[in-house]
Design a binder for these strands. Structure first.
Lengths: 234, 234
DNA sequence: AAAATACTTCTTGTCGACAAGGAAAATGCA
DNA sequence: TGCATTTTCCTTGTCGACAAGAAGTATTTT
């Protein structure tokens, strides 16, 4: 059935619609399936998800609360643009949160946390092996989120999650066409980070988190510089 | 007219209702005019603000997104409780953000920022003088928010604002009946912080931010300890 | 033909009504 | 009386319809 591609679900439990729409749209935005700046039409979404505009709207309000979409009063709502001009403030926040969450994980994790972290680590290695870019980016974010959760500080976890979300969009933006040697190095660094956490070595965890974060920042900056050259060349 | 006390406004511009409700409810929650755990009834609010439940609901969704209210599916929505058991994670986040935002303000502020900061500083001193507790707490939060804004990192500013909001509730909780010598010391510390920012002394700003944060944490912990004794004594 | 004005269209914002889920109250049964 | 079951009630969740604001298009006026 081809219709299945555009319509989702038929019968739902009361109250589940908002979460469904929120989750799907969030993923589509973060995977750049919905391009930054593209319009988000409530009526279209209502048709697609087979529900009225009310729950759609509620999902959109939540997405707007996280800055993933922007609402122009009385006119339209758009997928938020990626702010490339202020990347440095993004990087500042990202690196600090890498440090803090990894350090706290070393301090506060329990056995179950380590199991979850390792599981995602293996999953990440597998996606690298398979060269599945979209999954790689998503699983990497999940891996670091799991570390943050193990740190047991919901304030940091919340900010970090938002930063990793934004990172998914930025990475996809640059990794759209070509590939890098990026992956394997990061698998190794993940290994070291896990070891530091398990050994409850706060300073090492902090240091490795910082290095890992800066590694990613450099990578993105390199890609950014090269892309700018390409733009000029055209 | 006595009715005016419970009803607000009569004519509004389309789209302004949500912001109105959001702002008012947010303030009422942060000032503990709405007690933690107390119910938030959509129908009552609709009557009070003279509008339908739809815009009320949207405001509530936004408040829920910031963790100020909690929604029990199909049942009721409540003002979020203050999590006193996990105060240490709150303090960790608060102190770090005091440091980071003050440091960044020293680095990135401009002349206009300093004017705004000084203005709030004077306002704070005035509320201390007047012993107006509610204003004191609110203006203090605004003062530090202004410093964070001068730091020009929206990620940190966003988290810090949420932490200061939560701080408003915690402070009000303890300062409900009796007073402290708390104020004057903080006015002086604010002075020092402003000087460090103006002098673009990053290390000093960082250090003073840390001290200031820890100062407040200590104060709250002292009050907390004493209150516990009181509870036991009763 | 250019500018101002009116009209159309498109999308969001708001409304009133109804349905569903859950909790408490009322009822039936042993 | 004690317990299970039904009923009522209260609040939220969803719907379809309509109104308002803004942008673009057509029309009039000079």
């Amino acid at each position: 059935m081809i219709e299945q591609a555009t319509k989702d679900v038929v019968e739902r439990r009361r109250g589940s619609g908002v979460k469904l729409v929120y989750d799907i749209l969030r993923d589509e935005i973060l995977d750049l399936k919905l391009a930054p700046g593209s319009p988000v039409d409530e009526v279209l979404l209502a048709e697609r998800f087979q529900m009225s505009r009310t729950p759609i709207r509620e999902a959109l309000v939540r997405l707007a609360g996280e800055g993933l979409i922007e609402t122009l009063p009385n006119r339209s709502t758009l997928v938020s643009n990626i702010d490339l001009l202020n990347l440095n403030t993004y990087f500042d926040a990202l690196v600090l949160m890498y440090r803090v969450t990894t350090r706290l994980a070393a301090q506060n994790h329990n056995a179950a946390d380590l199991v979850a972290i390792r599981q995602l680590h293996h999953q990440y290695a597998a996606t690298v092996e398979a060269r599945d870019l979209r999954e790689m980016i998503a699983v990497n974010a999940a891996f670091h989120t799991a570390i943050a959760e193990a740190g047991r500080n919901p304030y940091f976890t919340g900010l970090f999650r938002r930063l990793l979300d934004e990172g998914r969009r930025i990475l996809r933006l640059y990794y759209n066409s070509y590939e890098e040697q990026f992956p394997q190095r990061f698998v190794d660094e993940h290994d070291e980070i896990i070891a530091a956490i398990e050994g409850r070595d706060l300073e090492a965890a902090d240091r490795l988190g910082k290095i890992h974060g800066e590694q990613i920042v450099e990578q993105v900056q390199r890609m950014f510089a090269r892309n700018q050259k390409l733009d000029i060349a055209l």
